[in-house]
């Protein structure tokens, strides 16, 4: 693995190797001293051209837990045009001697573009509606912690699938691991052309939830509903908001995932806060272990490439 942009070219053993490393990192995070010297001498840069406190904090803490130096570049959304400016910024950061760049950008494909001229490993921390691979990895890792194995499990991804990079990355990763993915949401928020052996589309939430092993509720932006799509919030909530009685259709052992931050009473009702099926805080914890594992895989043992 040279970069982590999406899951193109990935196989199940690639993911399993990463999960095994994440298991080791999770043990580090349980120690009294939650820090190992593994990445001493490496500098990790988070270059976020779009706001995200959670993801950036998680990457930076993961790097620090492994003793890497961290620099963070937060661009205001205003002054930076795409193209040349992005390139100038990245080349400047690389000239400062960073060993890896985590990039987040509102434009789909930005991470691939950065990879072309960075000359150091690039992690896609989310690009437009395209991909957010570490989120999908931490989702899968969270499910694996409960089930051991994802094969044969049924995972419902609910909400604004069309605009969600989280959904897209999970669509790539979960079927690779043997899980069946059911996409559910209003027809105009679902991708039009999508097919695969472990993929199903259901416009009806109740039937999607029957027999589901996990439900992943996506963020739904109120502006997007009421603006371009002409769906009112009450209409959306009536058909697609996840609440306790709906989750009960999936059963007492179903798991609830959410990439955060939650819009309470939009995509998910407040009565699910604190529900024992919720894995939201486990996801946050898994994110640290997964990101530590990704940093280890991209940085350690790559000396000959740099030479």
């Amino acid at each position: 693995m040279r970069d982590l942009l999406d899951f193109a070219g990935w196989s199940k053993p690639d993911a399993e190797d990463l999960f095994a490393t994440a298991d080791v990192m999770a043990e580090v995070l349980r120690r009294p001293v939650k820090r190992v010297p593994a990445l001493q001498g490496f500098t990790v840069c988070t270059a976020f051209f779009e706001n995200s406190t959670r993801t950036r904090t998680s990457f930076e803490l993961a790097a620090r837990r492994m003793s890497a130096d961290v620099v963070s570049f937060a661009a205001g959304t205003s002054s930076l045009a795409k193209g040349e400016s992005l390139r100038d910024t990245v080349e400047t950061l690389v000239a400062m001697g960073v060993d890896l760049i985590v990039v987040r950008h509102s434009a789909s494909g930005a991470a691939h573009l950065v990879r072309r001229f960075a000359g150091v490993p690039v992690i896609n921390g989310g690009d437009g509606a395209r991909a957010h691979p570490t989120q999908a990895l931490l989702d899968a890792y969270t499910l694996r912690a409960h089930w051991g194995e994802l094969s044969g499990k049924r995972v419902v991804i609910l909400g604004d699938v069309l605009h969600s990079r989280v959904a897209r990355s999970n669509l790539e990763l979960l079927p690779l691991l043997g899980a069946k993915v059911v996409l559910c949401g209003p027809a105009n928020l679902l991708p039009q052309s999508l097919s695969g052996p472990n993929l199903e589309v259901s416009p009806d939430l109740d039937s999607a939830l029957d027999g589901a092993d996990a439900v992943m509720a996506l963020r739904v932006q109120r502006e997007r509903l009421e603006g371009g799509l002409g769906v009112s919030l009450p209409e959306y909530a009536a058909r697609y908001q996840l609440n306790r009685s709906r989750l009960d259709r999936a059963g007492p052992r179903a798991l609830l995932l959410h990439p955060g931050p939650m819009n309470r009473d939009v995509e998910i009702s407040s009565d699910l806060a604190g529900d024992p099926r919720s894995c939201v805080l486990e996801q946050v914890h898994a994110g640290l272990a997964i990101r530590m594992a990704v940093l280890y895989h991209l940085l350690v043992g790559k000396k000959e490439r740099a030479a």
């Binding site: 095994a20 080791v24 990445l39």
Partner: peptide, 23 residues
């Protein structure tokens, strides 16, 4: 104990050591 994450040569080596569980 797996000591890989404490090795003093991780920034210099050309192959990636497989990590084992510390328990």
């Amino acid at each position: 104990l797996d000591i890989t994450l404490y090795r003093d040569d991780l920034s210099e080596i050309a192959t990636q050591p497989v990590l084992h569980r510390t328990e």
